[in-house]
Computed example of a mutant assay.
Amino acid sequence: MSAEELNKMIAVKKMDLEECEFELYNRYYPSIVRMAMMNYISVLQTQLEKYIHEQIKNKHI
């Protein structure tokens, strides 16, 4: 993945994560929906860490 693509992916994941966290903490949702949102947030955080790690790795090559 090119550096430009990686930067775009990181930006999109960060925006999605921020939006999901905002929605989770500022609106009422039934508990099953909240659990699904928390799971999705966890997945986003994992993906974001992976992309950031890849970005760091590519800068050192």
Rank of each mutant, 00 (worst) to 15 (best):
Y29Q: 03
S42W: 11
S42P: 04
K13G: 00
L6C: 03
Y51H: 05
C20V: 10
K57R: 11
C20E: 15
N26D: 05
V12I: 15
Q45K: 12
L44I: 03
K13W: 02
S42A: 09
K13E: 05
A36L: 12
E54D: 13
S42Q: 14
I52K: 02
F22N: 10
L44N: 00
S31R: 06
E19A: 07
L6F: 03
A3I: 14
N7W: 11
N39C: 07
Y29N: 01
K13Y: 07
Q47W: 07
Q45R: 09
S42C: 09
M38N: 11
Y40G: 02
S2W: 09
E54T: 04
N39Q: 15
Y40L: 06
K13R: 15
Q45N: 13
H60L: 15
S42T: 13
Y40P: 00
E18Q: 14
E18K: 12
E19M: 13
M37C: 02
K14Y: 07
I52A: 01
D16W: 06
K50H: 12
T46A: 09
Y40K: 05
I32H: 04
E21T: 04
N26W: 04
Y25R: 13
V33E: 04
L48Q: 00
I41V: 02
Q55A: 09
S2G: 13
M9Q: 12
S31L: 10
